[in-house]
Design a protein around this nucleic acid. Sequence first.
DNA 1: AAATGCACTCTATGGGTAATAGTGCAATCC
DNA 2: GGATTGCACTATTACCCATAGAGTGCATTT
Lengths: 213, 213
Amino acid sequence: MGNSAILSSRPVVTPPPVSVVAGRSRRRHDAARAVTLVAQRLATEHGLDGFTMEQLADAVGVSRRTLFNYFPTKDDAVLGELPPVEERALETFRARGPSGRLLLDLGVLATHLIGAISPEPEEVRALQLVLERNPRLMVKANARFEDYVAGFRREIAEREGYAADDIRPRVAVAVVVSLYESALKEFAAGSDRRPFTEIFAETVAAARSLVHE
Amino acid sequence: MGNSAILSSRPVVTPPPVSVVAGRSRRRHDAARAVTLVAQRLATEHGLDGFTMEQLADAVGVSRRTLFNYFPTKDDAVLGELPPVEERALETFRARGPSGRLLLDLGVLATHLIGAISPEPEEVRALQLVLERNPRLMVKANARFEDYVAGFRREIAEREGYAADDIRPRVAVAVVVSLYESALKEFAAGSDRRPFTEIFAETVAAARSLVHE
DNA sequence: AAATGCACTCTATGGGTAATAGTGCAATCC
DNA sequence: GGATTGCACTATTACCCATAGAGTGCATTT
């Protein structure tokens, strides 16, 4: 359990629910990502309330007003955007692929999303610290993540044709999310510098071995 | 991810790590439980900072000073104590029982602990609300829970003879905790008034069906 | 032995104010 | 033509300080 919030380092622009990152969007995404990296650095060095949007704007090289074109609030600038779901990956999932087994396919989708984040352990630790020191930000991070995974629950219910009150979407997402969080803790605590995707895969494998023992 | 904190309603005194509830301890536990119920009621009605320890003491019928004999802080009085692990249940677990399969046995232990809580849905919802409105309390609740489950991780590593850096204890606990939290959400949201243990069992069954599909 | 009264220390909260986040619109720039 | 920006404004939050209340230790009472 744990009150681990999703930690996005190097997050990507949240596009419309399902979209392909392209041309203008790509440039926008890269710009927003740069804002977030700087915002996270400033938050780590000075605290969340220790830097102003003016300072962030200066550090990024845009106007303060423009920052609000990328992010609705200062908190969102620091948290960044959650990884987008690429259209092809989602179509595969909807078509009950790649394996036909829900938990496995959800794990594949999660791996894909995790690959889009590619955090460094120091970044995860730093952002964890910022969150710990700012319960407001943690609450917001968790609310955002909850909305994000709610979308996956809906996709699951639809793919599997579950009834509206079926608890399996919630359970499936809860299990995969718990593995993600467990892996994130290992990643942040680890000293061996393996990529996060590798640690997630190892965590999934450990869960599988526990289930099939 | 959820930021669901453990919600203890009708919590039991946190005894020494492994102990049997008896005589004097039972009376102490009942008294502490009464304090927590009143504290939770006051927090729900007035907010966490909207009642004083003096008021809580008056409502319970003890002196303010005595409250601190039961709980180290006001927050702890509201959160209550986490359920104790009964000695017999722990001995069974340590002896690799009841089934010999770690995840199943951990689920049995969790069911036992959940049985000791027996919350009502209104209580869960009320306490969730208090936590939402008081990030400080939520942070504390989560830190306590993290310590609590760390103990189970140690028990698992010992029971299974895992190496110190083996990730399986963390994964096993993460999965069971995610099922607990998922069940808690269903319980708080539900309108059919089934006991929490039943909903947890249903959640475990759903996870099992997803794994074996 | 546990509860309690009491006096004290420490910390967090409340209120007022100023700083900053957030907003809308028009002008400018690429 | 769309994005950026400047600007003036509104709304909200952080900061500061004093006070209330949480927390503490000890002696007395039950």
